[in-house]
Amino acid sequence: MSLVELPTTAVPPARRRLAGRGLPLLRGTGLVGHLCAIVLLGALLVAVFGAAIAPHDPDLTNLSFAFVGRFQDHYLGFDSQGRDLLSRLLAGARTSILGPLVVVLLSMLFGTVLAIATAWKGGRFDTIVSAALDVLFAFPAIVLAIIASVVIEPGLKAASLALSVAYTPYIARVLRSAALRERSRDYIAALEVQGLRAWVICVRHLGRNMLPIIVAQGTILFGYAMVDLAAISFLGLGVQPPQADWGVMVATGQSGVLQGYPMESLCAGLCIVVVVIAVNLLGERLSDRSTLVTR
């Protein structure tokens, strides 16, 4: 994975005013941002209720229907095992979306805590933690996930844990500079003089004021997490078949692709692409906004 801070482009004054202050989640992201949020909300709903609203049993195989196209209320047809494709896509949304969500929450937690702690304490603690994170940088996320699949066991748990650890240094590095900037503000010094305890300032004030950038980074990270987690499942080291998952379905559909029936792989791939586009566009806008707010 390569997570890079994009150079911030100059923002016209009109948008600067739009960005405003406060928490309302989507203010200043424009029409595209709102559309993306709707797509993501839909995806999240499918992830939670997908298995329940699936018209057929996603695991019911019927080999005589293998690769059959659209048929009665099987709107997308069947996969190589004769399972209803639409139902599998709906059921597969759970691991494909909630998996990356867990990864994002974990690595944002690790990353934020490390970033604020190093920015607050500084000194030797900062040096040691930063050095440790630099070593972690040397491990590409996929390699870490492969190692985890051997050490723990192939599955969603090992893959999610490995990715959370792999992303932590990226998040910690971006947030640490934001935390340092915030730390040098006068209001923090004022709170310190008032005798508030360090962790209260960190959580209630510093952390809270960093929320826009934390949300923006988390959104961008979700796209990477989704792609990497699906790739690991595609490789057979993540979610295990026959469980429905978009990454797994791209892999199991590959035999169909070679025989000229690409529906399963393409549909699963398309689901991933749509969610990733929505999340990338929203993440970009949120991060444009967050650089305005924290500046």
């Binding site: 790739a231 791209v250 590959q254 690409p262 393409l266 791939g269 991933i272 692409v273």
Partner: peptide
């Protein structure tokens, strides 16, 4: 937004 494995499948 197109992961390498999806691109592989499409190109294939």
């Amino acid at each position: 937004a197109v992961p390498s494995f999806v691109a592989s499948i499409i190109l294939l």
